[in-house]
Design a protein around this nucleic acid. Sequence first.
DNA 1: GCTGAAAACTTGGGACA
DNA 2: TGTCCCAAGTTTTCAGC
Lengths: 155, 155
Amino acid sequence: MTVRIDETDRKILAELQRDAGQSLEEIATAVGSSKTPVWNRIRKLREAGVIGQQTVILDAEALGFEATFFVLIRTSAHEADWQRQFLKALQERPEVQEAHRLAGDIDYILKVRVRNARAYDAFYQALISEVRVHNVTALLSMEEIKSTTMLPLDG
Amino acid sequence: MTVRIDETDRKILAELQRDAGQSLEEIATAVGSSKTPVWNRIRKLREAGVIGQQTVILDAEALGFEATFFVLIRTSAHEADWQRQFLKALQERPEVQEAHRLAGDIDYILKVRVRNARAYDAFYQALISEVRVHNVTALLSMEEIKSTTMLPLDG
DNA sequence: GCTGAAAACTTGGGACA
DNA sequence: TGTCCCAAGTTTTCAGC
């Protein structure tokens, strides 16, 4: 499960994060190695699960997803059964882009991407009808200042 | 700037989101078309900026990024100059994966990914020394329940 | 705006230092 | 482990429908 990752692996991962569409040769040049060794490292990192999904970042606004909400949830129900149901509800709803269980006062935070405020309300009503929650605060994003999936691997 | 996107475009985008490493032929089959038309559509969508960065999702924990914080920021400074400086600070810090300006009571939310709690503290100290903020609440993630960049394009 | 095919490039793997 | 090289497959362009 744990993989030993050296400097070259880290450089390869940084290149792949930056642009996964590059040819093997470009990556090899960028990291100062050549095709076969780079290819073997990539294969190993993929097998180890360090490299996951290869995807494309789409322009959410251009596709009509104009509202992003961060939802802070407090609950009084802490039983295993409630939690299982809540997790299942989140996994099933594609408008939930992120969900984290938190330490402290607030129990969960969600990032919810929807077409408009009405679509958020529909989501909210569906959620609270499926699972009991104690208190919900929705924070509406006015402007996405920054959004990246890149990890800083160069340090 | 605005592109007309039809059903076929939407299917292509959904396929690319799901797996950007597929061959043109696989995508063409999946959407019920053939290589050349699919290729022309992809090119147009790329030019229009609907398709952005092509990347790879890495396993943050395997790479030693073990702490995620959501940071809620209230400020009393609403001058353009302060805002410019704050935005610049966020853009420059690679540990900030998301930053949104919010409507209402809380002014900004950040998602910050760091190696450990000490690294978060270093980030926090650096941030408050660069820009004046009124009130900061950090929410520590205990568990990433869900994380995706995919938009639900099938509806 | 599609089909089909040709040209250029890329991948994935084998033989060898 | 890395370098060189090849066959198979893929991308990109283009003429014709």
